[in-house]
Design a binder for these strands. Structure first.
Lengths: 172, 172
DNA sequence: CCGCAATAGTTGACGCAACAACTGAATGAG
DNA sequence: CTCATTCAGTTGTTGCGTCAACTATTGCGG
């Protein structure tokens, strides 16, 4: 019951403080750029990207919630707002009438195409451009190790993985 | 005006997705543990730690806001709630009667001492234990490089830097 | 079949953060 | 000395996320 190592070593503390600072500032920076450019939060952007990359550009609410690390109520509220903006449509799932399917509209895809360049620029300016190729590889490994603890079920694994080819997966 | 590299390379995308996932999950994990254990958010914990580490355990609101990356309105609301719980006291600054000084109370220090072990365990369990010493050093460098972009003025630099010696700086 | 538990999703209430507007004090120009 | 400007904080409003019901459908046991 006694802590093996009650406090953090100076090295641990220094790295931890910096990581916490990044985790604090990064979401704000992403939300700020996307909000100013296209009026989306980063979460909404990721949700739309997930839909854009899905077969038929359609996903069940539960699947989308799991993929984006959202609770179902949160996703429901977000989708209601996006639907009001005509970026998304919802309709009952034929196979299971309890379920709801969400589809990104053409307007939603268009907005993603409009948003993507600025978003990529922000990602580069704030993160990628600061790192050497070696550090990029190290970051991949480190973040993977941490995710093994934070997200053991790997639910977020496929999130927004379409970056390298852009948002449109228009060719059905 | 044309983007030099419009999209992310596969390596960039993979590392970025993982970093975003960490930035998404980490604050939630910290808030969950601190909230369950002592009813504090991570932000409140950091603010109290900052006060505990300050000379006289006292700081001006503006200085504390800058250090914790909070807007002044946000800090004002947070301090009002903490003051209602007797964890903090506020009083006008003698030198500048516009300003307000905040001090952590004995009860606040006691709560920090109660919270710290669980918090440290959470930090270890979710992050530090997943990394090799080499990776810890790499994380320090990488996060530092990213902070150079996200926080050019280094405002968050001294945040909660007292981890290695625990929360109490009781000896005046 | 019938009923009961579990699942999928929505809705409403509450809490916290951001923004804007405001008070009061210090500073500086004439 | 006076008035305008800036600065330090507080307060009220809005928006988003979480939690706790609630509805509707499925599926299972008897």
């Amino acid at each position: 019951m006694t802590d093996p190592t009650p406090w953090l070593s100076p090295e641990e503390s220094a790295a931890w403080v910096r990581l916490v600072a990044v985790a604090e500032l990064l979401p704000t920076a992403l939300d700020a750029q996307l909000g100013a450019d296209v009026g989306l939060t980063h979460f909404e952007y990721v949700a739309l990207m997930s839909l854009a990359g899905a077969p038929e550009r359609t996903m069940r609410m539960t699947a989308l919630a799991s993929l984006t690390n959202a609770t179902l109520p949160r996703l429901s509220h977000v989708m209601r707002r996006l639907e009001a903006r005509e970026l998304v449509r919802r309709f009952p799932c034929p196979e299971d009438r309890r379920a709801t399917n969400a589809t990104i509209t053409e307007a939603g895809l268009a907005l993603l195409e409009q948003a993507a360049p600025g978003h990529v620029r922000t990602v580069r300016a704030n993160v990628l451009d600061a790192l050497t190729p070696t550090q990029l590889e190290q970051l991949y490994e480190i973040a993977g190790a941490v995710l093994g603890r934070l997200d053991p079920e790997e639910r977020l694994n496929a999130t927004s993985c379409q970056f390298s080819e852009g948002p449109r997966t228009r060719i059905a």
